[in-house]
């Protein structure tokens, strides 16, 4: 049981590290938000699950932290992405389309 818990916990920590790597490597703010949110949400989910296996008495409280994060993490990324777009933070040169900027352009005319 301890080995299982530790394995899940370690896997979660690896995903959190990948989230950090994504934050560092991605070319623009939007892609960084993407890499940051996804990896850290699953990473947290897994590491809390691992901790729950190691200490079953904490399971409910850990579940509460996970539930809270599952709601707030995507919300804050959405707010940040919207803020970035409204503040005209530049997008990476690889970007192929921006339907939101087009829609705003139509609205202004």
């Amino acid at each position: 049981m301890t080995a299982l818990g530790l394995a899940i916990l370690t896997l979660g920590a690896v995903f959190l590290a990948l989230g950090g790597l994504g934050l560092w490597r991605m070319p623009d703010t939007y892609t960084r938000i993407q890499a940051g949110t996804k990896a850290t949400t699953l990473g947290t989910l897994l590491s809390m699950a691992g901790a729950g296996v190691l200490e079953p008495g904490w399971a409910l409280k850990l579940a509460l932290i996970v539930l809270f994060l599952m709601f707030t993490n995507p919300l804050s990324s959405q707010v940040l992405a919207r803020a970035a777009h409204r503040a005209r933070v530049p997008q990476a040169p690889q970007t192929v389309a921006d339907a939101l900027a087009e829609a705003e352009g139509e609205g202004a005319q």
Binding site: L16, G19, G20, L23, T40, T44, S47, L62, L80, A83
Partner: peptide, 20 residues
Amino acid sequence: LDRVVAFDGLTVISISALVL
């Protein structure tokens, strides 16, 4: 905003660190 995003990432990782 890059800094805010990075800070958010730091916080989320810290939560797991606290559980550790």
